[in-house]
Amino acid sequence: MKLQDIIDKLNLKPLTNMEERDVEGVFISDMLSDVMTSAKSGEIWLTVQTHTNIVSAANLVDVSAIIVTQGKTVPQNTIDLANRYLVIILSTPKTTFEIATEMIGIGVKNR
């Protein structure tokens, strides 16, 4: 599924520059070590973390985008770093559970 389709259907708010990407699943964790061990390239990462560290972890494993849930405010320095490294950050006021459920509803599946 295309990232823009998911953004439109789930009403996600882009916080960074955008480019079209394929989404091949969902990964949920608030631990960077989990992302390093288990996230797959092309997956969307759902988290409540907003520290600049999320950019370095997302970039390492090449997730398609990060969705920051629960309306957490993402600091400007995290957004700036993400723009520099072409990491896409999206925001939603919904909980991680709600967004994950909605993703299943629109047909996002893990490989």
């Binding site: 070590s33 629960q70 770093l81 925001s91």
Partner: peptide, 16 residues
């Protein structure tokens, strides 16, 4: 540089 480690990761910001 941005060290990848689970430290200083508190996310205490209130919803917008």
């Amino acid at each position: 540089g941005e060290v990848i480690k689970d430290l200083h990761m508190l996310s205490l910001t209130p919803p917008e």
